[in-house]
Every structure is written in structure tokens, then in C-alpha cells.
Measured scan of single mutants.
Amino acid sequence: MAEQVALSRTQVCGILREELFQGDAFHQSDTHIFIIMGASGDLAKKKIYPTIWWLFRDGLLPENTFIVGYARSRLTVADIRKQSEPFFKATPEEKLKLEDFFARNSYVAGQYDDAASYQRLNSHMNALHLGSQANRLFYLALPPTVYEAVTKNIHESCMSQIGWNRIIVEKPFGRDLQSSDRLSNHISSLFREDQIYRIDHYLGKEMVQNLMVLRFANRIFGPIWNRDNIACVILTFKEPFGTEGRGGYFDEFGIIRDVMQNHLLQMLCLVAMEKPASTNSDDVRDEKVKVLKCISEVQANNVVLGQYVGNPDGEGEATKGYLDDPTVPRGSTTATFAAVVLYVENERWDGVPFILRCGKALNERKAEVRLQFHDVAGDIFHQQCKRNELVIRVQPNEAVYTKMMTKKPGMFFNPEESELDLTYGNRYKNVKLPDAYERLILDVFCGSQMHFVRSDELREAWRIFTPLLHQIELEKPKPIPYIYGSRGPTEADELMKRVGFQYEGTYKWVNP
């Protein structure tokens, strides 16, 4: 592979701008107003304001973009700056750019259920340069409990009458099928589907988006991507930290609602779906819905739930269990780990287990898709061969690698495990991989909904998990304890083995 010439960040961002501006969906010269509902909250200060700053800094926003914060707290732009700027990672050389960014910011205080507050917000936006005809993007960085009041008031008082209007809704989209349907029906009564952007930030990850290209742009994968060759698929999300004093919020939802029903299920769809007619948003989402419709409700015998306990040999936070978090209700049975087996009941995947695993306070930070292939028929190497695996590593250190057998150097035919490896950090030294939120917010500006969740996708996802969630809430089974920093409950490994996964433990990928 030829040595790549190092590029400056300015040059890299210039390439990104060229890609972005050559499309006809990006209205570079139009006025846009980006409204952050819930501007005083954690999500706004840690993710949304920093993301908008990065896009502005790199010249990736339309030229005439204004940012308006809205929340109940009586704040000023200076207050917003004070709480969000520490997350910007701005350099001293960017000081003038930073001043320009905050000059485009404003803030309006108001209630979430008060019509007069929204009329005041609308008047404020109209007073901005060309504000009355601007395109408006409303980001709901809010708890779902206020979605209905907020969307109703936005629709009645704050819509642009000339430009387009788009609304970005953060997960969780309800707690179960019934609450999700209620919320979807409410929002759909106010906005068209092409105006609604239900954001799952995992769909903005580079390697998640790469799944489609790997599958449908490489001839070698087509013939082997089926039940005849693939023994099982494992989708993993692991965090090495616990709730760390923020367990009160987590306890309301648990690990299945927080990660599995959305992030992991979306990745499953991209692995299992048929080739779409095109890369058009609805063509892709149509195929994802077909996959979900082929999955039956989760069966309790295919589920393992766990909850982390303190590690007596650990240090600091590792010595504390979930129930030691003062914000967690006493005696909570909320799971911090889950392993679930699903089956896609169609011709391509009949009988292939899709194993979804996620948890907190585990032994490493990792998100990946792992396809394990069947054993080689007619073994001539005296059971020395391990199964081939194709691994798409989402985070950290984005990579695609194939675990395969090669001859060990020497005189004899002794096979050993090795890999074919594409590590993004080595291959793409001159490429700026956008943060997931950067990519998705740019998608909203461009009107691309491919990486957002459609209402029928959402409904099918909740259909699969709601009976299990209701059973857990009714019966309150005690989750299996696992030690902070471990791989999780051993019962999860036993479940995976029972459905056909072979864990060798003899080879570990190392970032080159």
C-alpha cells in the first residue's frame, strides 16, 4: 500500500466541504435556525453545542446559521458558553472563530407547556436576519415526558411559513410498544414523516454505516452471507464503567431499553437485511423493517440478565456495585447486563442465532459485530482449526478484520490463527472521521433520513421486546451478580454456547 501524504486539518475539512456542497440537498446560502429545546441540560452542553461548534469551526454548516437555545432556566448566552465550552476542545488559535460562533447564538427562556412562551420564541426567531423565511431545525434534547406539549406548541407557534421545518427526537422513544405508539401517533398528527428525525446516534458511527458497503459492494461476501456458512452472529456493546452516581436515570430504563432495543437491534438489521433497491432512505429502511418483521418476540429462556457488584480487589469506582450508587433505588432489580438470542425467521437466516450482548462495568470498552462461520467440513488438521470470524469493530479503534487459519512457519503443516486486517487509523491517516452527532446533524440539514429511525421500524423493535420488558417488570427477577471489570455473568457464556457459538479464547485482536 502506497504511503499517504499527511494533510493538514484545513485540507481534510476542505475535502469534506467539497463532498457536502456538491450535493443538491445542502442549501449552503439559505438562512437556517437550529433550535435546541432543553438548552440547559446535560445532553445540550456535552453533545449538541459542542457538535454545532465543530461543524461551524470546520465550515460545514450553511453560511447563515443561527443557534437558539430554549429552556425553562433563566440563562444568558454567557451562561450557555460557560457550561458548554469546556466540552468544545477549542484551541487558543480558534479564539476569534469561537467569538464568531457565540455571536450567532441567542437564548430564550420559557415554559414547555405555555403557548405564550412559544409565541415569544417565534418572535425572537423572526427578528433574526431573514428569520421569518429561514429553515428551522428543532432538536428535542428533553425528557420524553414533555415531548407531547413541546411538539404541539412548536407546531402551533414556531413553524417557518416559507422555509422547511424538521424536528429531531432523542431516544428513548417511549418505554414499550404502547407508549411508543402513543408518542408516534401524537407526533405524526403534527408533522409529516419526512419532517421527523428520530435519532439513534449509533447509526451515525462510521463502521455501522460501513456495514452496507461491506455487504453490498464486495462480491466475495454475497455468496457466504447466509445460514449455510454463518453459524452465529454476535452483536456486542461493552462499557468498562458503571453508573457513577447517575444511576437514578438509568434505573428508569435499564440496559435493554438503553442499548439493546435500539443500538444493537439497528446493527442487527444492517447485518441481516436484503440488498435495498438503492441507497435512498426509504429503500434502506424498507429492508430493515422486513428483517424486524421476521423476528419473533424474545423468549425468556433465551435471556440472561445481570447486575454488577463491587470488586473487592478493585480501586475507586470498581469497588462499588450498582446498588451502592446513592441515586439507585434500594434493592433495585434493574439489569445492567443483558444477553438475548433472537432468530430472523426467513430463508437466508433460518436457524442462525443472533446474540445481542450489552452491559456496564465490564472488562473493556468495545462495540462490534462478529460473524462466526461454520467449521470446515472434512477436517484434515486433527481438530487444530478454529472457526473463521469476520469482525466489524465499531469502537474504539474502528477496524474490519477476518480471523482465519494460516500455516505456522516451519517444517510442518501446523495451522495457527491469524488475521486479515483493515484498521482505519492506519489505512486512512488523512481522513477526519466525523463524530456520530456531527454526521447525523449534517444529515438533518441535508434532509437525508437514511440513518434515522422510521415509525414502522420503531414499532417493530418495541413489538419484539415489550413482552419481555413487561414480564421483567411484573416478576422482578433478581439479576445474576457479576463482578465489576469482569466479562459479565458466566451464564451468558453458557447461553451463547448452547445456541452454537464457540468461544476459543486463544486469539485476541490487537490494534496495530
Rank of each mutant, 00 (worst) to 15 (best):
D100K: 10
N64F: 05
Q161I: 06
A39Q: 00
R257Y: 03
G254Q: 02
A116D: 10
L55F: 04
Y249E: 14
M212K: 01
L75F: 07
L20P: 11
R227A: 11
A134H: 05
N165V: 05
E252C: 08
P92N: 09
A116H: 13
I154D: 00
W164A: 06
K45L: 15
V77S: 09
I255F: 01
A231C: 08
I256P: 00
D58S: 03
F191Y: 09
A6R: 09
E18F: 04
V68N: 00
A115S: 14
S180W: 04
I162Y: 12
I255A: 14
W53Y: 06
F138L: 01
R74E: 10
T31D: 11
N218D: 07
Q111T: 07
K95V: 04
I187G: 03
R175S: 09
K205W: 15
D42Q: 12
E148G: 13
A44F: 03
E206T: 14
S117K: 03
L142E: 11
I187Y: 06
I167N: 00
Q178I: 07
S180F: 03
I52A: 11
P143R: 05
G69D: 02
N122H: 10
I36S: 00
A217V: 01
R57T: 02
P223W: 03
L61E: 00
N226Y: 04
Q119D: 13
Q11R: 06
L211N: 01
G41S: 14
L20Q: 09
P62W: 03
I224P: 04
L183K: 09
L214T: 15
R72E: 08
T91N: 08
L20E: 05
R227M: 04
R74K: 13
E99P: 02
E239N: 06
N229Y: 04
N122C: 13
D24S: 06
R120S: 08
Q11S: 07
P50K: 06
R74T: 04
F102E: 02
P143C: 04
R9K: 06
G248A: 14
F241R: 13
K45T: 08
G204H: 14
G131R: 06
C232S: 11
Q209I: 13
S179M: 06
A44G: 03
I15Q: 08
K46H: 13
P172Q: 05
T236C: 04
F253E: 10
V12A: 03
F87E: 05
G38C: 03
S8C: 05
F102D: 01
I234N: 13
T10I: 06
Q178T: 10
P172V: 07
I154S: 01
F87T: 03
A39L: 01
V169H: 12
S132K: 15
E193A: 03
Q111F: 06
R104Y: 03
Q161Y: 11
F237Y: 14
K82P: 02
L211Y: 04
E94G: 01
N122R: 07
L61R: 00
G174Y: 07
L128H: 06
I48K: 00
S84G: 05
G163A: 06
V213R: 06
R9E: 03
N64M: 08
G242F: 08
D100R: 04
A78W: 10
Q161C: 04
G174A: 06
K171P: 14
G131S: 11
K238P: 00
V108R: 02
S84C: 14
L177Y: 07
R104K: 08
K205N: 15
F253D: 14
Q133S: 09
F56V: 02
S8H: 07
G254P: 02
N226P: 00
G248W: 12
T91M: 10
K152L: 12
I36C: 03
I224A: 15
E244Y: 12
W53E: 01
G222R: 12
S117H: 05
P86D: 08
Q195V: 05
G222K: 13
T10V: 07
E85V: 11
I234E: 15
V12Q: 08
P50D: 00
H124F: 07
N105H: 07
D194L: 02
D24A: 11
N64E: 11
K45S: 10
S184V: 14
R219H: 10
E3M: 09
G110Q: 01
H201C: 06
D79V: 03
F34H: 01
A115F: 07
A116N: 10
V68A: 01
F66H: 09
A44C: 03
G59S: 02
N64S: 07
R227K: 08
H124Q: 11
S160I: 02
Q111L: 06
F216W: 10
Q4S: 06
E170K: 09
V150D: 01
P223M: 07
R136P: 01
L96F: 12
L121E: 00
S106T: 10
N185P: 02
R104T: 03
Y147D: 07
S180V: 06
F253S: 09
D200G: 15
R219L: 07
S188Q: 14
Q28I: 12
F138E: 01
L16C: 04
G163W: 01
C232N: 14
L98A: 02
L177K: 15
V233Y: 01
E252Q: 10
I199G: 03
I67T: 02
L130C: 08
T76E: 04
R246G: 04
M207E: 12
L75P: 02
R136V: 04
Q28C: 10
P50F: 00
R120N: 07
E148D: 14
M37K: 00
R227G: 09
S29R: 07
I167G: 02
R72Q: 09
P144N: 14
L55R: 00
P223C: 09
G204I: 15
R104A: 04
H186V: 10
F173I: 05
K238N: 15
N126K: 09
K97N: 04
S73A: 04
V150N: 02
Y118Q: 00
F21V: 06
F26Q: 08
E18N: 10
F56T: 02
T51E: 13
S160R: 04
S132L: 11
F216S: 10
E156L: 10
R166K: 04
H124K: 08
H155M: 07
L190V: 14
Y249G: 15
H201S: 10
Q209A: 10
C232P: 02
L211F: 14
S132T: 12
G254F: 02
P62N: 05
V108Y: 06
L43W: 14
W53V: 00
A6K: 07
I48P: 01
E148H: 10
G245A: 12
A2T: 10
I220A: 05
F66V: 06
R9S: 08
F237V: 07
I199S: 06
F173D: 02
Y147M: 14
Y147L: 15
G248D: 14
Y197E: 00
L128N: 03
I220S: 03
N226S: 13
G245D: 13
D200H: 10
A2H: 07
L183V: 10
Q111S: 08
E94N: 04
F21P: 04
V208E: 09
R175I: 10
R192W: 05
H129M: 14
T76H: 08
Y197T: 00
N105R: 00
K89C: 11
W53H: 00
Y249C: 14
V213C: 06
D200K: 00
K46D: 02
V208Y: 15
S188C: 13
I36W: 00
V208A: 14
Y118I: 10
H129N: 13
F66P: 03
L177E: 06
I67K: 00
